[in-house]
């Protein structure tokens, strides 16, 4: 577990946006943490924790929403650090377009945003289409943008059905021939289901994206 995780979690549990943001900026500025580690070791676990809590303990949804929005803000703030880091690492653009989004009715988009950032970091041309994207919109975006990779994030397991529909629409009504990547909390209990819904690759955490760079 990352040494900063506990500390950040405490601030987050107090729903103190200002302190949370200050804390992260400080750590990024001091190079105590880099963006990918922040995402995978701190933001992702705390997000998942709250999401599960909200379901199991009937924790108020509004609390979950406040926390999610704090994390969302942090992710937005991370973008300049991300670009800097990319440059420092000497990563060149690979010209591969990645379309990142969430299926219809899926409003938990923080994960998708982080995925997009990861792709960016590794040199992909990541296009984030947003939360709750109807499958026809996804289809139209694909037909226009011609991405090589599609990444769908699903948090609520009910939306796996919508993801399946979106994927089959993509396969039937676009000439997309790249890889479809899926990820998100919804797959935790259904690790094998990605095949059933027509995806090619299931990424369990953000580090897996790094491995993809070689594969695509």
């Amino acid at each position: 577990m990352h040494p900063l995780y506990e500390e950040f979690l405490k601030l987050l549990e107090n729903e103190d946006k200002e302190k949370c943001v200050e804390f992260i900026i400080l750590k990024l500025d001091n190079k105590e943490i880099n963006v990918p580690t922040l995402y995978s070791d701190i933001l992702e676990p705390s997000l998942n924790l709250f999401y599960c809590d909200a379901e199991d303990e009937k924790l108020c949804i509004w609390k979950e929403h406040i926390r999610t929005s704090i994390i969302g803000t942090i992710i937005e703030i991370c973008y300049p650090y991300l670009i800097k880091e990319k440059k420092e690492r000497g990563i060149k653009s690979n010209q591969i377009k990645v379309l990142v989004g969430c299926p219809a009715e899926e409003f938990h988009d923080v994960g998708a945003k982080m995925i997009a950032d990861f792709f960016t970091l590794y040199g992909f041309d990541a296009i984030y289409v947003g939360a709750n994207t109807p499958r026809t919109e996804i289809r139209d975006a694909i037909n226009t943008l011609k991405p090589k990779i599609i990444a769908l994030s699903v948090t609520n397991y009910f939306n796996l059905m919508e993801a399946e529909k979106a994927i089959s629409l993509i396969k039937e009504h676009t000439d997309f021939d790249g890889k479809i990547i899926v990820g998100g909390l919804a797959f935790m209990s259904n690790p094998e289901i990605y095949k059933k819904i027509g995806a090619d690759i299931f990424v369990e955490n953000y580090k897996d994206i790094q491995k993809l760079t070689g594969e695509v």
Binding site: Y157, L160, S189
Partner: peptide, 22 residues
């Protein structure tokens, strides 16, 4: 309702299309 249950079984055309656990 469905998203609050522990398991969703999607039936399509008389077959189990998806069998999802929360």
């Amino acid at each position: 309702i469905a998203e609050k249950t522990d398991r969703i079984i999607e039936i399509r055309d008389g077959r189990i299309h998806l069998d999802l656990l929360k």
